[in-house]
Nucleic acid binder design. Sequence first.
DNA 1: GGGTTAAATAACCTGTGGGTTAAGTAAGCG
DNA 2: CGCTTACTTAACCCACAGGTTATTTAACCC
Lengths: 108, 108
Amino acid sequence: MDQLSATFAALADPTRRAILARLTEGPATVKELSEPFDISGPAISKHLRVLEKAGLITRGREAQWRPCQLDATPLKEVAVWAENYRRFWDASYTRLDALLTELKETEQ
Amino acid sequence: MDQLSATFAALADPTRRAILARLTEGPATVKELSEPFDISGPAISKHLRVLEKAGLITRGREAQWRPCQLDATPLKEVAVWAENYRRFWDASYTRLDALLTELKETEQ
DNA sequence: GGGTTAAATAACCTGTGGGTTAAGTAAGCG
DNA sequence: CGCTTACTTAACCCACAGGTTATTTAACCC
């Protein structure tokens, strides 16, 4: 699976997006991250593994804790990818497109 | 499934992203869209249904053709969502964060 | 009407995603 | 050493995603 697909797949789950949001406030342990959800520890571990494989988090080791930290690098790729479609949602670009089309027609 | 999750899930597949890229060049029929891939028609139909449910394409009806058209609106949501993480990948923001932290510490 | 083309639907297979519980690993602590 | 805490791994379940082939629907064309 390519990098971008892995990133999108990781982001498709609300729990994982919530984990990323929490990590914007700073590093956290697995226990802390699991607090807001009523799903089991192993389920959280799996989510973290997906995020780690997608390169969205890095993990440390401090005694019996495995602190997680956000790595937003892949999100830059997402932003860049989405930006390429800006002209298709942006109204001013749409008007520009219409203008260009019109010009092209009058040329012929 | 919420809108954002549906969008990310739709974007997680490379075939579907390729279809969106093709549709930036203008509307296309199902046949035309399936041309570049060596997967069956029904498989393409399923991909299109996913894209349609995510609101990324709209479909018309012209005789026996069902032309597909790009609707990038959900991609704006993606861009906005990703932009919220800009300060975590942008180096200058990182330096700003460091500066703010430093300031906060000297205040105490 | 009969044949052809475009596309969707149905039925099926297989892999994987997200969840569970139970057991294992690893570190702190009395 | 033995107990507790933090976390992972293993084994399992079920739903769904992505693919297939075969069939159906719908429209055009002769």
